[in-house]
Design a protein around this nucleic acid. Structure first.
Lengths: 245, 245
DNA sequence: GATGATAAAAATGTATGGATAAGAAAAAAA
DNA sequence: TTTTTTTCTTATCCATACATTTTTATCATC
């Protein structure tokens, strides 16, 4: 039946989706090609353009993106370590699947580290970053009212990025970024319904206020509250999405 | 003066140190060469055989390890993400330097996550892992009495690995491993004096007991106590080592 | 129709070559 | 002697080629 078509179908869709995502970097010489490929593939995975489990073939990707296999290989290796791709030696790479267990794992770690971020940020935030934080919060609130889902998601991510950066701990920043990718995928994959933006706004405000007031414990508590609710909500969505199938 | 000699000198020492570290993997076919190279270089960096700041040239490493440049490149990319190597595009790779700031960063994050590990482990540890934990603890105590520094360090690392694994959170495991590398480098670089093994033993016992008793809060507290002391001690060593120069 | 063996196709793993750019050495100028 | 410029070596980056392994397709058999 359609079983026969399936292969060609995937290929077609794949082909149609990629080229526009790959920026022609003729002007910017200094960026290595592998980095461009990496960012391109990463974005495609994060936004669900490449489905979990889909195979990432070097030659095919090379043809599509117009490069040789070498930069593709290196990009895929990097994606593997970011957890977005799983490689089985000798066989090849696939887009990593995201399971409920993964979410659980990430959320447990993130809950703890978000608290740490908030605590440290409230102790160390610079005057400059304070302005940035206020702005990020305003942008978020604005986008919940007038923006589309993508804009909301991005402003949300940015809000948390500012806090993470304000914590002034590179390692923490790095770890948080790695987990943010996974969470982003979940959101993109499962969350279609309207979030309860009013709650989110209140929670963000609470975190914001505590950090600006330089109140570490309050900040940590607000962060914990936020992430726990988030976790619960995403889990709910996940189960709803499952039961629909 | 000896400025002129310096380059050649490094080269020589480098050449002499590597080959014995690279296992001849003629028997085991299934492991990719890049993985072997990766592990080899990783070990050399962790144990200080390759100095911080030292340049890692593809061709040279290829000659020394007897492989082409391709596996070397891929191993280096992986090392970069692990934080053991810094790459400047177009220029090449160097062994990453470790600063006091790095230690501070890692310790802050690790303090939090160690508590999480202990807490989760005490809730989730299996009967099998309980035995493993007890054994790891005994091995550690034994090695502090009869082993050399390397053995002590390794049994210490293993003790914490068991706990981390018992926590049953892959993401946590992964993050902890990444940080363990950095800490290991510090220990190897700066810690020559005898540690206060009696204290360490007592602290390990406390953690062990709390986990076996399935007491999350106690476990977290014991872990925090342990890591904070460790941090303090390493910092002290670091400053002592600095003032000696 | 399902299952298993065999052969063809394709993909990965590794090696190597050419183009470009960074870095070192040498030469020229101050 | 120091600084600047130029030349030349060397390394990375990407592309490509070959060898081996894995996957897929085909066909025979139960």
């Amino acid at each position: 039946m359609s079983e026969q078509k399936k292969k060609k179908y995937n290929e077609k869709e794949f082909l149609s989706v990629i080229p526009e995502a790959m920026p022609a970097q003729d002007d910017q010489q200094s960026i290595p090609l592998r980095e461009t490929v990496f960012l391109t593939l990463r974005k495609l995975i994060l936004t669900g353009k490449l489905d979990p489990g889909e195979r990432l073939t070097e030659v095919r990707l090379g043809k599509i993106l117009g490069t040789s296999r070498t930069p593709i290989r290196e990009a895929i290796r990097k994606l593997e370590i970011e957890g977005l791709v799983t490689i089985t030696p000798g066989s090849g790479a696939r887009v990593a699947k995201i399971t409920e267990g993964d979410l659980q794992d990430v959320m447990e770690v993130r809950s703890t580290l978000d608290q740490l971020c908030a605590r440290l940020a409230s102790q160390r935030i610079s005057e400059e970053d304070k302005k940035e934080l206020i702005k990020a919060n305003e942008t978020f609130e604005y986008s919940t009212k007038f923006g589309n889902e993508q804009e909301i998601a991005e402003s949300d991510v940015h809000f948390h990025e500012v806090i993470t950066r304000a914590a002034g701990n590179r390692r923490l920043d790095q770890v948080m970024n790695g987990m943010a990718d996974t969470i982003y995928r979940f959101r993109y994959e499962y969350i279609r319904d309207d979030l309860h933006y009013e709650e989110l706004i209140m929670e963000h405000r609470a975190i914001c206020r505590a950090i600006l007031d330089r109140d570490p414990e309050q900040a940590a508590a607000a962060a914990k509250d936020h992430i726990d609710r988030q976790h619960e909500f995403i889990l709910g969505q996940l189960r709803k999405s499952k039961s629909e199938k």
